[in-house]
Design a binder for these strands. Structure first.
Lengths: 186, 186, 186, 186
DNA sequence: GCGTAAACGAGACGGTACGTCGGGTCTTTAA
DNA sequence: TTAAAGACCCGACGTACCGTCTCGTTTACGC
């Protein structure tokens, strides 16, 4: 049997209200206008409740994004599908959230550390592992530089997120897939 | 002949002190700690002098970067050389400056507008024009998607700037060039 | 026979720890730094235990003072002795406690009410009754204004407590007694 | 000729609005409810303007009181008149202001220091000097303890301010004067 | 040279958000 | 029912910058 620690348990309701408020505020006013004070106000919570569980607004937004991503289907072994998921997952309202996180990482060294290690590198790694398995299956050449390809894919997605140089749609995703294949093949 | 407006002319000395102070502060404390107040303090000027000539800190940093880039040799027609210049120009102390600008563009809509149009798009355009000339010279295939290639190159550079996923050196630049060539061929 | 209410009885140990902690904290950090949170921390109790039994920190301190005063000998009929007891009882570590209570009474209307009625007025009344008995014994003139004398004595003590204008010692107490006598006589 | 320091000069308008707001808030809500934040709000100024010129709310209230006192007639040589002025000056809306200051002095050691030296001691000293001159004029005995008398007078006034044990009116003032005279005479 | 006028440094102004502290309440487990 | 623990909403704290303003001072030009 499980024993629980004493004291009032964390309010799941408050947690959700905070994540929802943060996402809504970014959508409405932009990440630049997002403040801890504003999140607390919009969520109807005290500021202390924010600071008790997150070091700053970036971590709140990050948790909100991960929350959303967790509901997606697990990545299969199909690279085209994975890239489509990644591109579409960075489109729409998520674009502003991701852009804000990347901005924050340039401002706050502590957040940068965890963001680069636990988010950017981790996503590259997932694609890399997919490519490794494809290589083992002889779908792509044995000398393919899987790290370079994974970096290329996410670099392209992030550039569109940050520069708004073009849409993040299926067409773009498929062009990335084809380019990736072309890079890798002789 | 030129007529000059009356009144005390703008102080070139103050302008230089401000740019130098901004660059120094970013190098020392990071872009996140950069403030208009801090720049004025470090440059030994009044805050009004900053606001008279720039809307915000991002524009100051942007001017400082452009100041530095203006002293470089004009881009020739060699793509490998151009990419090398672009990569190296984004390395060293410039990495933090550029990362800060990109971050600011995600926070401030007004700056984003001009940054994307006058900086990001302009640099892509220079590479695109180089590629167009190469295409006309039949160095690369007639059906090469020059826009996609230009976007790929800068996407890769920016990803390294922002994610610190690897060095911005000549080796990286040459790999970009080779990949670009491979994308474009058949 | 006595019936006891059901449930866990009040912890005398906690009560004592709280009073002791409050006194210690005032002595160490001053009344201004005294907080309910701090008392609970120092006493090793929960905050709720404080709020269950006292409305605020002032009442805790007041109970601690009364606890101390209860151990003194009951006032006899000698005025000189009574004033000496009163002065000495306001000296030492008690000075800070009393000063804090008086301060709190200026801040919190609810506490002020009970402090003035149950503490200040009560102490004046004890001296007044002493004086009335002295008057009946013909030790002091029949037309002596006993209220004015009692007010004078405590006013003087409190002024030293609050202004730190001089020591609260036996010499001061005896001067008060002599002055009181002089006021009352012709 | 006078030279002025550079920079925007202090706003006399803001200063007055702050003092007026502080006095009004104490009258309406009591000193206990007075906050720096509330003063700034009521005065329509920024908080920084408060902290730029005063360390805390007590100093603001103190300046407001001194401002009011400065408009009074200078103390003549008549002791009865002086005591009347002192008592009446502590009555009405000033009672709450003074009570608040004394409370604050028990909470904040830094303020206590200046309050005791520059306010309490100074006022005692004025009365003491009056008594010394009276002694030199042979109006009161040569062996009169002027310090004790001055302390008695202010102790009595402060006790009424803090305990609300009775009114601060002319009748009370004159009784103080008579008692003071009686103390001093054989 | 002398007046006009803009730029300069300094620094106060009304604001907003920061991150923290404590208030008083509520909700859990344990005694 | 009380107690310890600790999360909750709330509001004030004192600070840092924001962008604007108002000073006295400096430096050019046109008269």
């Amino acid at each position: 049997v499980e024993t629980r620690s004493p004291g009032r348990p964390r309010s799941e309701q408050a947690r959700r209200a905070i994540l929802r408020a943060a996402v809504r505020l970014v959508a409405e006013e932009g990440y630049g206008a997002l403040t801890m004070e504003g999140i607390a106000r919009a969520a109807g919570t005290g500021k202390q409740t924010l600071y008790r569980w997150w070091p700053g607004k970036a971590e709140i937004v990050l948790e909100a994004i991960n929350e959303g991503a967790a509901q997606l289907a697990p990545p299969g072994d199909d690279i085209r599908t994975f890239i489509r998921q990644s591109v579409v997952g960075a489109s729409g309202p998520n674009t502003d959230l991701l852009a804000g996180l990347m901005a924050e990482a340039q401002m706050d060294a502590a957040f940068a550390e965890s963001f680069r290690k636990n988010f950017l590198a981790k996503r590259r790694r997932v694609l890399r592992d997919l490519l490794v398995r494809a290589r083992e299956r002889r779908d792509i050449p044995a000398d393919a530089d899987v790290d370079a390809v994974a970096e290329f894919v996410f670099a392209s997605i992030w550039y569109r997120v940050l520069s708004r140089a073009g849409p993040l749609d299926k067409r773009f995703a498929d062009r990335l897939t084809e380019t990736a294949v072309r890079i890798v093949e002789r």
